[in-house]
């Protein structure tokens, strides 16, 4: 016992020793953590890309983070949160055309024969002409259209509220599925939208821009205007509409962009 006690008694360290010891420990920890931070960063930089599927083009860990972050921020979504609207005079006269994917590469498209195809299930589908859609109550909106690239423009659109359209065609039950998928007639451009944004009161199927029928490059005869999303989700020239509980394919989500892309 006596001997053990003696061994435990240590002489107090001198100032010099204390300084040395603390320097050694703190710089050791500093370089160890710094090294692991660099290793972690290298791991992320060289992390493999996700397996291409509904989403693609992003590094696997970054895609997981995007999806987790989506879930967090969806908690703040409310259909009472309306996009700011402006008087009609503020709307741009020359509306920006950013992309023509799904339109320019469709030489066979005949606007006279166009009908919106709503897929009820794998066999049945509704075919709705533009005049039937124009007969539904009209909703107008002048809002700041926001592109994921960073530009924005105040634009004036009119059409039928998507939720009005869904209830008119008795599609409410289908619209309770988690997602809606929209595609251009040639299937070259396609988007997936979660239920909340689909049923948002400012989401419309638009057939008018600045009080006139939509021009070809803006998505005639019918396009989606969804102010709670970036422009990439505002699909032009809708060909088909479908519903599912899992994410439908989405053009830009396949190329590394966030699937949600909500504002």
């Amino acid at each position: 016992m006596e001997q053990q006690k003696k061994r435990k008694v240590k002489a107090p360290l001198s100032i010099e020793q204390k300084i040395k010891r603390r320097n050694f420990i703190s710089f050791g920890v500093f370089f160890a953590l710094g090294g692991s931070a660099i290793a972690g960063w290298k791991w992320l930089l060289h992390a493999p890309e996700e397996t291409p599927g509904i989403t693609g083009g992003a590094k696997a860990p970054l895609r997981r983070a995007l999806n987790k972050t989506e879930l967090f921020f969806r908690n703040f979504f409310s259909n009472n949160h309306l996009v700011k609207t402006y008087p009609k005079e503020r709307a741009a006269k020359t509306v920006r055309v950013n992309s023509l994917i799904g339109i320019e590469d469709d030489g066979d498209f005949d606007i006279g024969k166009w009908k919106l195809e709503v897929k009820i299930n794998s066999r049945e589908s509704l075919k709705i002409g533009i005049e039937d859609i124009k007969a539904l109550p009209k909703t107008e909106i002048v809002f700041d259209f926001k592109c994921v690239e960073g530009w924005d423009q105040i634009q004036h659109w009119a059409g039928v509220k998507l939720s009005d359209f869904l209830s008119h065609y008795k599609l409410d039950a289908l619209a309770q599925k988690n997602y809606m998928g929209l595609e251009t007639p040639n299937g070259e451009y396609y988007v997936g939208l979660e239920r909340d944004s689909v049923l948002h009161p400012q989401t419309i199927l638009a057939y008018q821009m600045n009080g006139k029928p939509i021009s070809k490059e803006h998505g005639a005869p019918l396009r989606l205007i969804i102010p709670v999303k970036y422009g990439i989700k505002n699909l032009k020239r809708i060909g088909t509409m479908s519903f599912s509980d899992t994410r439908p394919r989405d053009y830009w989500a396949e190329q590394g962009y966030d699937y949600y892309s909500g504002l």
């Binding site: 992003a58 590094k59 970054l62 983070a65 972050t69 994921v148 690239e149 590394g256 962009y257 966030d258």
Partner: peptide
């Protein structure tokens, strides 16, 4: 590198 930039930005913002 917009898509990549957003993916990093929205992770490291946390």
């Amino acid at each position: 590198r917009l898509a990549e930039g957003m993916a990093y930005h929205f992770l490291f913002m946390w």
